[in-house]
């Protein structure tokens, strides 16, 4: 039972990070219908920005807020300058451009911060060896509790933004029918850029939380997290923010259980593959994810 709760806690905390990045993917997909391959790398760059501010003596919380602002500007800027121009001409082009961003940002981070000694990003929460709480015999570190709490609060705020504000309504309008939305007087350009911006800001936070757990920053920081996040977005349904959160947490918990209970066959090396295979099977039954809407087509 102790093991069960241990895996559950670890899984929930890690899963909340996947869920944050997955939410970014879903926000972008709902807004513009694109899979942003560079989401993870944008998050990685912002994490370095947070570290840099912190290194210059800015308090950590303020650095994170600055990092999120940079993330917003990066996301919105990329959408307004590059993505929109290419998307008008070709959808496949957007894919290439997001891959190009992926490569470019990755290389940029290595160019700026590459040869420094491995940067230690201080954790946002107390992470001394004895900073933990025992619940049902399992160790729940404050750091992990903090990550989960921050992630859940941010998701809550985001849902309020979607459901209760005028801006959220505009976003939904643009997602469902851009042309009618424009005719109704919604500034679609600003809305689209903002949805990329929001995704960028959330990426910055998920990167910082993940960086705090990993400890050392490098250009490959977010690659695996990005795969988990896109798996979460797929499992939840690419147009369902709630689905992304539930799927992110489920994947986080699920991989801990798979790795923990089958150390010989799955273990740490195969847990990503095992999680992906499970999702694969789920998709065979529900091709649009658990909470995604099925596309109905008129011929």
């Amino acid at each position: 039972m102790e093991r069960f709760f241990q895996y559950l806690f670890d899984g929930l905390s890690l899963g909340s990070i996947y869920a944050l990045l997955a939410l970014g993917l879903v926000v972008v997909f709902r807004g513009t219908g694109h899979l942003n391959f560079a989401q993870g790398e944008m998050a990685m760059i912002c994490t370095f920005v947070v570290w840099q501010f912190n290194d210059w003596g800015v308090p950590l919380v303020l650095s994170i807020i600055l990092g999120m602002i940079v993330g917003f500007a990066l996301g919105a800027g990329v959408e307004a300058t590059i993505i929109r121009g290419v998307a008008k001409k070709s959808q496949a082009g957007v894919f290439v451009v997001s891959i190009a961003l992926f490569l470019g940002l990755n290389s940029l981070a290595a160019m700026i911060w590459g040869s420094l000694p491995p940067e230690q990003l201080p954790g946002l929460f107390p992470d001394e060896p004895d900073d933990f709480q025992r619940i049902f015999g399992a160790v729940w570190r404050y750091e992990y509790i903090g990550v989960l709490a921050v992630a859940l609060v941010l998701m809550g705020l985001l849902f309020l933004l979607f459901a209760k504000t005028k801006f959220g309504l505009a976003m939904r309008a643009v997602a469902s029918n851009p042309e009618s939305a424009r005719l109704a007087g919604i500034p679609t350009g600003i809305v689209l850029a903002s949805s990329w911006g929001i995704a960028g800001a959330m990426g910055a936070l998920s990167g910082t939380l993940w960086g705090g757990i990993v400890g050392e920053l490098n250009a490959g920081l977010m690659f695996t997290v990005f795969i988990y996040a896109s798996a979460a977005a797929t499992l939840g349904g690419f147009d369902s923010p709630g689905g992304a959160v539930i799927a992110g947490l489920t994947i986080g918990v699920g991989e801990q259980f798979l790795a923990g209970y089958f150390p010989g066959w799955i273990g740490q090396e195969m847990k990503l593959s095992a999680a992906l295979l499970t999702i694969f099977v789920v998709l065979l039954v529900k091709p649009s994810g658990l909470f995604g809407s099925t596309k109905v087509e008129r011929v």
Binding site: L103, G104, L105, A110, M111, I112, W113, G114
Partner: peptide, 10 residues
């Protein structure tokens, strides 16, 4: 610090 090759490619 490192070669800009990939950035230029992007």
């Amino acid at each position: 610090d490192q070669s800009p090759a990939t950035l230029i490619l992007g």
